[in-house]
Amino acid sequence: MKHEKAKKFGMVIDLDKCTGCGTCMVACMAENNVPFREDDTDKLISVAWMRVYRLTNGKPFPHTEECFLPRPCMQCEGHDGHSPCVSVCPATATDYDMSTGIVSQIYTRCFGCRYCMAACPYHVRQFNWWDPLWPEKMTESLNPDVSVRMRGVVEKCSFCIHRYQTATQKANLEGRRELEEDEYQTACTQACPAGAITFGDLNNPGHAVHQMVKPDPNHGGRPKNPKAFRLLERLGTNPKVYYLSSRKWVRRAGDNYIRQEGSQNHS
């Protein structure tokens, strides 16, 4: 089912620029009505659509290096849209949309079996073990464009799809069908003070992301940019989130390697 002007929204995160400040997480929580818990330190059950991980190169002091890695939903395309989570959902609650390339999650349809959580290799999906809770008065600042989730359903990053919806309806009112690059940007992209996140349509040559990571046939279909990599590339999940790093150990950390395999030279 090929759409003529199909879009493929993707993200490029420059880890050389990321300072690990967490602004993307805060912007995401505020934008997407992510609830709080009194003790949210167990990160396995804490709900956060965007999470910044802290990597180290494992070398002893003083040669230790750190790198922060922001992780939204990878919006895997897999092969023909069969991303890991979409293939296992028995409720059609999660779906791959060929016209935007975004993996949707419909909370009213989800019945909480959590197959998708088991299938997702990136820990992107989270289960609502409790009804959502916000500190007093903060309910007044909830975003009306994003539905809140009830206990017992799975949720995940949507690439701020509501921003695409509202931008599209504005464009439609003005008689346009297509959006400009800056009309649809995710909350994390706009919030990042270091400008580390770039967002746009990977299929549109006019968009910055397309230029940054466009596949190169001479490079095995992977981006020409030697700094570019994707998380767990070998699984074939075909994610739409790319990372850039000039450090080899960071790029290697993005995938699983057998101990003896390849060069062990962290540079």
Binding site: G22, M25, M29, D40, T41, D42, A48, V52
Partner: peptide
Amino acid sequence: SMRLASGYIGSPPFLIKALEATILKGN
């Protein structure tokens, strides 16, 4: 830490939630 207000001003809940598990765990 970049994710903590370090003075007498308290961190808002957003920041405490965004705090790494290598800084705060439980209480």
